[in-house]
């Protein structure tokens, strides 16, 4: 009898301690959640990141513009015949990040290249119409992109990203 009760007593005590400790852990985790979640973009920032529409009509061949979407510069290039030809004819096997030009533009809109103008190396803004590939040149660390925005030379690991966009008409796109 004595043995049973003394063995029973610590068990109940242990259960209480474990339950209290578990409750404290749950409470701490629930408290930490909002303290961390507040760092995510707030509702106004998210709302401001809604899709934007861009009129392409004023952009002449060979010209490019920079628009901002979600704080990122988006290059919209009206490519020349030469640029399109260069982009399409390059051998995929020679590319560090192989991707055909057709996967980077919308079908039937070959003349329009829409890319996020942020170097995939460390986030600088490449300069358009510079470098050896008729595309972009990043002045920070010398990455060079071609007329399809693909990485050709330099430390950047990947092609310039294509943002989500769609043609609303032949002269209007919606980014986002």
């Amino acid at each position: 009898m004595t043995t049973a009760s003394s063995a029973d007593h610590p068990t109940r005590r242990d259960f209480l301690f474990v339950a209290t400790g578990a409750a404290a852990a749950v409470g701490a985790a629930a408290t930490v959640w909002p303290l961390v979640a507040q760092m995510n973009p707030d509702a106004a920032t998210i709302a401001a990141g809604a899709p934007i529409q861009v009129d392409l009509a004023p952009i002449v061949e060979g010209q490019d513009i920079k628009v901002f979407w979600r704080g990122k510069p988006i290059y919209i290039s009206h490519r020349t015949k030469k640029q399109i030809q260069e982009a399409q004819s390059v051998a995929l096997s020679s590319l560090p990040d192989p991707q055909p030009d057709s996967a980077r533009v919308k079908a039937g809109h070959d003349q329009w290249l829409v890319v996020i103008g942020i170097c995939t190396h460390l986030g600088c803004i490449p300069i358009a119409h510079e470098g050896n590939y008729d595309g972009f040149f990043c002045p920070c660390h010398g990455s060079q992109y071609d007329s399809s925005g693909r990485i050709r030379q330099g430390p950047a690991p990947a092609n310039l990203a294509v943002p989500p966009y769609a043609f609303l008409s032949d002269t209007k796109i919606q980014i986002g």
Binding site: P34, A37, Q38, D42
Partner: peptide, 28 residues
Amino acid sequence: AMHYTPHADLAFKSVELIVRDVNYGWLL
């Protein structure tokens, strides 16, 4: 302080934005 703007023209509004838009801002 991560969300507040210490400027006479913006402070009041920034506090309101904390309460309305920041995740759990009202709670904090």
